[in-house]
């Protein structure tokens, strides 16, 4: 992207709403018939962390160790967030008793923990994009929130503005300074993407190297992207098949079917179903009300008590 192109097509790279300038909602006007999206079924998720491990392996992520993890410097593009019990109940108890021990007792341990795989939501109007001082992160035609490591100067403004906190900063030079991949482990590094250097921000790319290959093959064969063409690393590793990934604009894709079955619409900040009482739909997007228009739909866990 040249500077002149950036200035001429400013609006294209800086979405405020996906509908404003054609964008992905109007895909006849848009050059790309592809919008990568995901749906994660929390009812199927067992919190086993296989997705996270697969992501480490696929995307050349360094394992930072206990100390740096405690400092919040872990590089897990895909992380499992863990929640115990009913949050409202726990908070109430906490307020009245101010006794953490008591709260812990009252956690709904019978139901077990609830897990939430958290990764970059690839927002259509991403808060991180608008604040980058050098345009290192911008929107691609296939609906990804790109991160260009060469352009990044490490201001970390994007991470500060990300409501999901899914951007990770390279505080150290992991390959040489920290020896994250001592010989012969460097042989396992994926050649399809770089090992990031010190001082740049990084985040989930929806396995860009895989979607790129799938698009390339489809183009050579002169056909549309099919559902089976591409799997992200996390999706591939998930033992319960909780994650599905594909082209949202292809009505035949699993993702599109799931989104429409749950009546979740990409370009709405408040879904229609939210207002209706007793609805049986499970689909939601995290922090939708902030209007980043995320590309990942989560399916609520069905509690025993609710059934």
């Amino acid at each position: 992207m040249s500077v002149s192109n950036l200035l001429e097509n400013w609006s294209k790279y800086r979405h405020t709403h996906p509908l404003d300038d054609g964008g992905h909602a109007d895909w006849n006007a848009y050059p790309s018939p592809i919008k990568w999206a995901m749906s994660i079924d929390l009812d199927a998720c067992t919190g086993c962390n296989a997705c996270s491990v697969a992501c480490y392996a696929e995307n050349n992520l360094p394992v930072v160790g206990k100390d740096k993890y405690a400092h919040g410097q872990a590089m897990h593009w895909m992380r499992i967030e863990r929640y115990w019990g009913e949050p409202e109940k726990a908070i109430d108890e906490f307020d009245s008793a101010m006794n953490f021990q008591l709260v812990a007792q009252n956690f709904d341990v019978d139901q077990g923990a609830q897990f939430l795989p958290m990764l970059c939501q690839q927002c259509e109007a991403a808060p991180c994009e608008t604040v980058c001082p050098v345009g290192a992160t911008n929107h691609t035609e296939d609906g990804l929130n790109s991160q260009i490591y060469n352009r990044c100067i490490g201001s970390r403004y994007c991470s500060a503005n990300c409501p999901y906190k899914v951007r990770y900063f390279n505080w150290y030079s992991y390959p040489d300074q920290e020896h994250a991949w001592p010989e012969p482990l460097n042989q396992q590094l994926n050649p399809d993407l770089t090992v990031r250097t010190k001082g740049v921000m990084e985040k989930c790319t929806f396995c860009k190297q895989r979607t790129y290959t799938a698009r390339n093959d489809a183009k050579t064969e002169g056909r549309e992207i099919r559902d089976e063409d591409v799997q992200t690393a996390c999706q591939q590793a998930c033992p319960t098949g909780a994650i599905s990934f594909g082209n949202l604009f292809n009505p035949e894709s699993t993702v599109a079917k799931q989104w429409s079955a749950q009546q979740v619409d990409l370009v709405k900040e408040k879904q229609d179903k939210d207002g209706t009482p007793d609805n049986k739909l499970r689909g939601y997007r995290i922090l939708e009300e902030l209007r980043p228009f995320p590309s990942i739909m989560y399916l609520e866990r069905v509690r025993e008590s609710a059934v």
Binding site: M1, N138, T140, L144, S146, I148, R151, D192, L193
Partner: peptide, 8 residues
């Protein structure tokens, strides 16, 4: 013409 196509 977007960075992400060539920069990995």
């Amino acid at each position: 013409n977007d960075c992400f196509t060539c920069h990995k």
